[in-house]
Design a protein around this nucleic acid. Structure first.
Lengths: 71, 71
DNA sequence: GTAAAAAGTGCAGCAAAACGCACTTTTTTA
DNA sequence: TAAAAAAGTGCGTTTTGCTGCACTTTTTAC
């Protein structure tokens, strides 16, 4: 599970845009409390929630599924 | 939201391995009912649930986040 | 150094993801 | 084509992601 890394990217992006958690919450439709959880490294987000954050931050969120090793 | 496509990949993979929904449920730890929902195109999975299915199917599940357009 | 802004946290409630069960429908196979 | 296996569905329960509120801590700006 690499949700920690995902949250870090979201946070970095938000900061690089000079946007507060509160503003991002409003823009994305994800609750401030939820954002705070994510940025402090907790949580198991749904695809929909990730998508909302990505949309608001101008990020393209894609799930890649590929074979592991030889098949 | 491309969860539909993700579910299709999971289903295709399961079928190519000749594994039933029931067996995949056991192997992955995701409930049979939940799998059925997914494969019939419904649901908004968490990263953890996707990961469980990927693990059981020998698939690598990765979330890619990249900039949209010019930044 | 202090006030304001932003970020982090505990707690409780709600909505929905995940689940189990019983049943029906579709597909497979003998 | 009948029986068995697999897949799909309705419904109720449990679990947990998401939320709001109140508060504390940290960071920023004056």
């Amino acid at each position: 599970m690499h949700s920690r890394e995902i949250f870090n990217i979201v946070k970095a992006r938000r900061e690089s845009l000079n946007v507060t958690q509160e503003t991002l919450a409003q823009l994305s439709g994800v609750a401030l409390r939820t954002l705070k959880q994510f940025e402090s490294g907790k949580g198991n987000p749904t695809l929909q929630t990730l998508q909302k954050l990505g949309d608001a931050l101008g990020l393209e969120v894609t799930v890649i599924i590929k074979n592991k090793g030889i098949n």
